[in-house]
Design a protein around this nucleic acid. Sequence first.
DNA 1: CCGAGTATTGCAAGCGCTTCCGAAACTCCT
DNA 2: AGGAGTTTCGGAAGCGCTTGCAATACTCGG
Lengths: 345, 345
Amino acid sequence: MTVSTPASVQVVAERAGVSVSTVSRALRGVPGISAATRKRVQDAAEEVGYVASPSASRLATGRTRTIAVVVPLLSKWFFAEVIAAAGRVLSGEGYDVLLTELSTPALRSEFFAGRRLQGRCDGVIAVALQVSAEELAALESQGQAIALVGAVRSGASSVRVEDRAGGRAATRHLANLGHQRIAFLGIQEVPGSPLGGVPPAERLLGYRDALAEAGLASDPALELCVENTVDAGAAAMATFLTAAQPPTAVVAASDELAFGALGTLRRAGLRVPDDFSIVGYDNHELAGTVDLTTMDHGVADQGKFAAKAIVAALAGAPSAVERIEPRLIVRGSTAPPRHLRASGH
Amino acid sequence: MTVSTPASVQVVAERAGVSVSTVSRALRGVPGISAATRKRVQDAAEEVGYVASPSASRLATGRTRTIAVVVPLLSKWFFAEVIAAAGRVLSGEGYDVLLTELSTPALRSEFFAGRRLQGRCDGVIAVALQVSAEELAALESQGQAIALVGAVRSGASSVRVEDRAGGRAATRHLANLGHQRIAFLGIQEVPGSPLGGVPPAERLLGYRDALAEAGLASDPALELCVENTVDAGAAAMATFLTAAQPPTAVVAASDELAFGALGTLRRAGLRVPDDFSIVGYDNHELAGTVDLTTMDHGVADQGKFAAKAIVAALAGAPSAVERIEPRLIVRGSTAPPRHLRASGH
DNA sequence: CCGAGTATTGCAAGCGCTTCCGAAACTCCT
DNA sequence: AGGAGTTTCGGAAGCGCTTGCAATACTCGG
């Protein structure tokens, strides 16, 4: 295969009979070029299949028109979904998206210590990363625009999910159905593997809020925070089943945990929602498949907003924070507890 | 926040008391620099926090040290997993990862028509994309190295899953268990939405192979190819249940389809594997959760190989093709058909 | 028809790095 | 000790684009 050298401004200029500066201006829509020459230049460019060298214009302008998206773990549905949504608006706006996965603590620290993004992008969208104030300042001093998903910090645009309200809503739903012993299956950051990035701790607080409001005693034995994986959820559920007074329902801080819990329940011969109720969190792609009641928090919207915010920031807009109210999606994994239904007949 | 201009070669050169060319060579490990000066330069660079401007070196060398990864749909587990694996090796090798999602036919054609990648990357990994010979040639003429996942084409490195063998293995497993009426739930490309990229048609052929080998009649009513989504899988399963002689087992061409089918079975009150057996394809992250027997084809390995292949290609290696043999992962969704087990007792 | 004012366009200087080529400084060997 | 042969380094010319500034062409009122 013969590799053809791409056409440069030079050849377009010659072909259109103008100078290179005119070509540059004409093609980028800079005012001050007559309609006639602009047309001529565009045609010439079209004919030779000209496309400006990104490296060259980046060097000349100092802007890369690239946004870095950094996530803890790409293969988790939540992150992929956020990236996909963000990527769509970014490429729609003419930005390239640079993907960065910080799957290990080593990578993470190396990332923030070194100037890995220096000159590579104009901004960064950090998803579910615990970015310290210093790290954020370091990025800003490099001139990076910043948007945070799943974390708020003054000065940076961010999308904040009202997790406390979400946790409360999920728990209330169960309490309203008549459940008295409701467990909480939460997410805890595990040192070695930052599987889920920053854990949404507020969901637990919301759970406690709801318990208190419903006049239900909170039992430490019914609160378990584990790594955010299906397996850990399954194991935690098993633990709940060994309690002296087992719960009749559980609110899980993620759908993945809920999936695991569902598996344990199934294997234990307990039927959902007849014997046990469960509500998840995320409205995962497959939540509907397993008929899981869950809290939706517009995952794709989060990515979309972050992308728009960063584009706006690069256009000089002030930082903004978007608040997302989780909504309960009722499916088939929640119902009144057995004793109520039995007596209700 | 004050934005500090990054240090340039200039300042490092002055600080180390050498010329810029020496700095450039010293920092990149180019031979011909004495150990002493190299050290001095490295120290100076370290002190001022120097990091070479990517734009500048890209312009000067013509190489971007960036690989584009293009997928049909990012939010599908399969693609995210491939990208994650590829990304890890690429960034390990010092390459940036440029993400491109071609979620609509419009984007797709625009992508190949225009020179969207021109000067942006040194190579592209195309995942599950039906890349025509001309499109591939166009990319090559731009000087792009190419690696294909889920497609083979001479001249480009590619990873090829032995889908025919995989489909046959899945089907044989069911036949060996004694199933006589085995349905096939396949993937069909749906014009408007390239959800799954290029459909793995060979899985169907393998299914037919196995049927023939087992002496089972192939019934057109038991072959259904639909869009690769959970919902479509659910709907297709429902169709099977309306057959005059319903199947007792089904091999699905993807786990997502299988998930949908499982849902339909559950809602229909049929128990898996007691009343119905099903084997999926992909070994999806959540296949274990729903106890789905499936065909594993090393999804992460595919990404890893593609990345390595492209790095090798850029180092001058000839193109290679990696063949992956799917393996059956036995879980709890397959068992001998009811009549056999009943009489077996 | 002329000059002030405005609309267009060209020149040339970078942007920050790489690399060819020649100069300078050292090796050794006879 | 005197070159030939090596190393090690600096000078300078780009890479392809953008942009400040100057120059030219064109507008129109008087």
